[in-house]
Amino acid sequence: MIYPLNGVIKVTKLVFLLLLLIPLAGWAKEAIPVAEDPEVEKRMLALTMDLRCLVCQNEPISDSRAEFSNDIRREIREQIKADKTDEEIVQFLVDRYGDFILYNPPMKPTTILLWFGPILLFVIALGALIVHLRRRRVQVGEISLSPEQLAQAEALLDEEKKGKKV
């Protein structure tokens, strides 16, 4: 025994001290349920994975702990419960935050360059390569020697053969 209980006063003291601990139990809260409805949570996660957190711009809302993302997640949960379709929810957010909230930009006049720019660059590069190769072939084909040059070349080759024999 840590406390020698030799007297009623000591016991009442101990009980009193223990009673003082009761308010501490009030601190322990039940964990807030992350997913009240797993179906809603699943849809919400799938949606928010492709949405940008505007505060921490390189993080999707699904991963972000920012207050902004908390609010958007709550909003999406509420809208899912209100039987809104995924398209309606995304449109709701785009109307307020713009296309920037989408990681997948929609195809429209202002994003045509974004979508087709790489293909355009590839086509230009391919064209440049073809033009370059054609030009080189013409250059290679054009090389012709005059009779004197041919004679000179033959003489040089002959000389080399003789040199090797020696």
């Binding site: 505007l54 505060v55 307020r96 935050y97 713009g98």
Partner: peptide, 12 residues
């Protein structure tokens, strides 16, 4: 609760 904030596109 920031509901009107969402309507106005508030994030910062």
């Amino acid at each position: 609760d920031g509901k009107v904030g969402i309507d106005y596109g508030v994030y910062g």
